[in-house]
Design a protein around this nucleic acid. Structure first.
Length: 609
RNA sequence: GGCCCCGUAGCUCAGUGGAUAGAGCAACAGCCUUCUAAGCUGUGGGCCGAACGUUCGAGUCGUUCCGGGGUCACCA
């Protein structure tokens, strides 16, 4: 149990034995004590005062005394200011905590809770390369999956590739018309970019045709539909659905190029999936569910044969599920895929990492599943995130106004290279080591930049300003890690003696006895220990909120506190041997927690930088 | 127009109903003969979009309004 959990339970118990009261842990608050007051943790008494009809001073003193008597190994002192009971955590307890955990690289990870969670993310279209928005999606999805796993869930990462539809046909038509048989290989172009270029070419050419048609008197809508290129694309879509060999052949070929490109990007940014679904396999799913719903009278059919669900009693609209010709729409396929996922993995929770533009769609999907009596309906959760916009406006693939994912990654590693060369600290690194370092730093800066922000907030990115490497950033934390490594390396080289006997167990100086007169903790040592102690709580919170920014905030705080500690105190030249051993342990545990926190964000840490 | 999200320092963002609202960037002033200065220490900078309400207490909860965005397809 962590201190916070202990304190809550202990307070409830004390209050019960003092006043025969029955409080729940939601009836009062436990906070970290503000730095300007003495103490480590604070019980806020106001809500209790009312119930018990006692003055805050009396209640605070009685509860404080009770807690110290009952848990002398955890709490040692207290003070009451206004309605706040501030408790000091025993140094002995912190020493014990450190001894128990400083070597545990898996510290903070929870044992299995028996739950299975699916996280669907990335979900790209195969007609264009990934841009900054997709990267946010990937980083979020990956990180949330890691966090849930650390919290004890079994996680299945999935991806639905949108590999069919009119948008794919547009790239195919453009390639047929304009390529002269060029391929990614012949042009030395990454496959997804190659295909994306043809998508843009289609739109440019189509736009010209529309203009011509509008000049001859057609409305914009009619012109867009009747433009020869669009008619060709529509015909191609029909041919694809009918399995026309040459169309299917081309489709496979071009999608193959795109996958090659995607895989390269995924590999570089460290995204992967346990299960990939393809829309070409799933777009016909869901029809049987619709038929069943029709039988049960949950859905209804209009005169033209189309099938609908009435959601007006829930404040939404009527929603189409099957067209008059029997073909399905987007939401029908989603329904079918959700059903398939459930049958395959039986997740208790199914998280969809999708932009907030689809809030309505996901709300409708969940509601329909509920109405159809699907067992997985309540487990559907839309983890929505804000769109990424540029200072110059929205990103639009069709118009080419996007921050390309690959370009940005490349730019970041270049920046990392630039900073590294300027500082000149790793001149002994070889080519391979340098390249590795630039990737770690560049991607670290980028991922941290994206993940430190609350997912639901939309992000505005200025392509002119490069992502920072100082302050509240990934490299700042990576730097802290590297610094600690260089201390710990002194042990390996014999420059720093590390005794494995737990701190405080030597006979001469037994600081565990009383209130450690012999080895008082400095403010920064104490602060670090309390932060480390709180790591499991932080994971639980991040998991409950499905929010990586909780982790980003935490690990930044830890690194920042360590940097102050590092400047204030020496490890190798500590005041005495006891302090030295204590600080080695604190340093070691801090690196472990930094590393595993960063892992939760999908960010690697370097040994040197 | 209906519904949803956002509004906190010049900028980017933190802030489970609790004590004097915090970081980073940018600006300014210091700190490398000591474990990595991608660091540390300090200064300045705020009617927390507005008003009313709920209560011992509101940046946080409620209502209304203002500003920004999203969405309301037989598109995906």
């Amino acid at each position: 149990m962590t201190i916070t959990q202990t304190l809550k339970a202990a307070a409830i118990e004390c209050l019960h034995s003092l006043y025969a009261s029955h409080f729940k842990d939601t009836d009062f608050q436990v906070n970290q004590t503000k730095p300007e007051f003495e103490g480590d943790y604070t019980v806020v008494l106001f809500s209790l005062v009312k119930n018990l009809k006692k003055s805050p001073e009396i209640l605070g003193n009685e509860l404080g005394t009770g807690l110290i008597n009952k848990y002398p190994g955890v709490f040692t002192n207290f003070n009451v200011i206004k309605g706040f009971l501030n408790l000091g955590v025993s140094s002995k307890f912190l020493f014990q905590f450190l001894d128990d955990n400083y070597q545990d690289t898996g510290y903070g990870k929870q044992p299995s809770n028996g739950k299975t969670v699916m996280v669907e993310y990335s979900s790209p279209n195969t007609n264009k390369p990934l841009h900054l928005g997709h990267l946010r999606n990937n980083f979020l999805g990956w990180s949330v999956a890691e966090i849930l796993e650390a919290d004890g869930s079994k996680v299945v990462k999935s991806c639905i590739v949108n590999d069919r539809g009119i948008h794919i046909c547009k790239s195919m038509i453009a390639w047929k018309h304009f390529s002269n048989g060029e391929t990614p290989q012949s042009t030395h172009t990454k496959g997804d970019h190659f295909v994306g270029d043809y998508y843009v070419r289609f739109n440019d050419a189509h736009k010209k045709q529309v203009e011509e048609l509008m000049n001859s008197g057609l409305t914009a809508d009619a012109a867009a539909k009747q433009a020869p290129l669009m008619e060709e694309a529509q015909q191609m879509l029909l041919d694809w659905e009918n399995g026309k060999p040459e169309v299917v052949e081309l489709w496979k070929r071009m999608n193959g190029w795109v996958y090659e490109g995607f895989n390269e990007t995924y590999k570089r940014i460290g995204s992967d999936f346990d299960k990939t679904y393809y829309e070409s396999d799933t777009y016909l799913l869901g029809k049987d569910l619709v038929q069943e719903g029709l039988k049960n009278g949950i859905l209804y059919q209009k005169d033209d044969g189309s099938v609908w669900i009435d959601l007006t009693s829930d404040g939404l609209d009527e929603k189409l599920l099957l067209r008059a010709d029997g073909t399905s729409v987007y939401i029908t396929a989603d329904l079918g895929l959700a059903d398939q996922k459930y049958n395959q993995y039986k997740p208790g929770k199914s998280i969809y990492v999708i932009g907030d533009e689809q809030l309505y769609h996901m709300k409708v999907l969940k509601l329909i599943c509920k109405k159809l009596g699907m067992p997985f309906a309540d487990g559907i959760y839309h983890l929505s995130y804000g769109m990424v916009e540029l200072t110059t406006g929205k990103m639009k693939s069709r118009e080419g106004t996007v921050v390309d994912g690959d370009d940005l990654v490349e730019e970041m590693t270049e920046t990392a290279k630039h900073h590294t060369e300027e500082l000149g600290k790793v001149k002994d690194f070889n080519e391979v080591e340098l390249k590795e370092l630039y990737e770690i730093l560049g991607l670290g800066a980028m991922k941290f930049y994206v993940l430190r922000v609350d997912p639901k907030k939309r992000m505005i990115f200025n392509p002119e300003d490069s992502i920072d490497f100082h302050g509240y950033t990934g490299p700042f934390i990576q730097y802290t890690y590297a610094r600690i490594q260089s201390i710990l390396k002194k042990i390996e080289t014999g420059k720093l003696a590390f005794t494995t006997a737990p701190a405080g167990e030597s006979d001469e100086v037994n600081h565990r006895g009383g209130e450690n007169e012999n080895l008082p903790l400095t403010a920064l040592e104490r602060e670090l220990l309390l932060l480390l102690e709180n790591y499991p709580n932080m994971i639980a919170e991040a998991a409950a909120e499905l929010n990586p920014s909780v982790v980003a905030n935490y690990v930044y705080n830890l690194a920042k506190t360590f940097n102050s500690f590092y400047t204030e105190h020496s490890v190798a030249n500590a005041e005495n041997e006891e302090k030295k051993q204590l600080r080695i342990r604190i340093s070691g545990m801090t690196t472990n927690v930094i590393k595993s926190s960063m892992q939760l964000l999908g960010i690697r840490v370097p040994q040197r930088m």
